[in-house]
Design a protein around this nucleic acid. Structure first.
Lengths: 119, 119
DNA sequence: GGCACGGGATGTTCTTCAAGCAACGCGTGA
DNA sequence: TCACGCGTTGCTTGAAGAACATCCCGTGCC
């Protein structure tokens, strides 16, 4: 039981790393090839400090790898499985949208997560 | 750009739904077949109220489906892709562990996410 | 060496999430 | 009808996450 608990926590950590729009955007950018922190900050519109934080989270979870060359840090994805996971979730979302328009509206109105929008 | 932003947010919502140990445990339980809210609460050790909240999040993201039969709510996974995603992440974690023991220690000590453990 | 720049780390504030508790609606069976 | 069990919803409190500002360190250039 405890072992499972730890395992689930480990899973959750990885999912949590992916549970942010900007971090997903970073991953998508890195899918096109490695990039520097400055480049990522510029393309995502994040401040360097903020991007550094997000990248640190991705690094801590082992999703991206950092290689320091001179004054620049070059980031890249550690595994293509990261992209596969995103693709799978994309299909999951599309499936839900295809299933019923009802589900589609739920997903669209789910952003606040406070009001169920079903009023 | 804005469209991409929305898309990333949608992705993030789904990942966020998976970014909790107890919700992953619920998914794992539902992988064995549908179950009632009471059954899930009992097996996960959550209170009925708390479980209801977690299941609501999974429902809102379209990961589980609820069917009310009499006084009981029967929950089941909406798609096998949910399990596939978890499996992919599991392989991702195993890959990282295999890569280097260093990565393994990072993942193991990542829980607080504050101190990098590198003293 | 001195300076500017890229990148990371720290601290603060604000927002959001999670768990506990209590109360309610609802269907069931007596 | 009434009481009971099942499930959900509010509210509240505490903890985690995110954005921002600031400072520090290492590198490259003058």
């Amino acid at each position: 039981m405890t072992g499972d608990t730890v395992r689930y926590a480990l899973f959750a950590e990885v999912f949590a790393a992916l549970a942010h729009p900007k971090r997903l955007e970073i991953i998508r950018l890195l899918a096109s090839g490695e990039d520097t922190a400055g480049g990522l900050a510029d393309k995502t519109g994040l401040s360097k400090a903020n991007l550094s934080q997000h990248v640190h989270i991705l690094k801590a979870r082992g999703l991206v790898h950092c290689e320091k060359r001179g004054a620049f840090c070059h980031y890249r994805l550690t595994s293509p499985k990261v992209l596969e996971t995103c693709e799978l979730v994309r299909q999951l979302i599309l499936d839900q949208m295809d299933l019923t328009t009802q589900y589609r509206r739920q997903l669209a109105s789910v952003a606040p997560l406070r009001k169920k929008g079903a009023s």
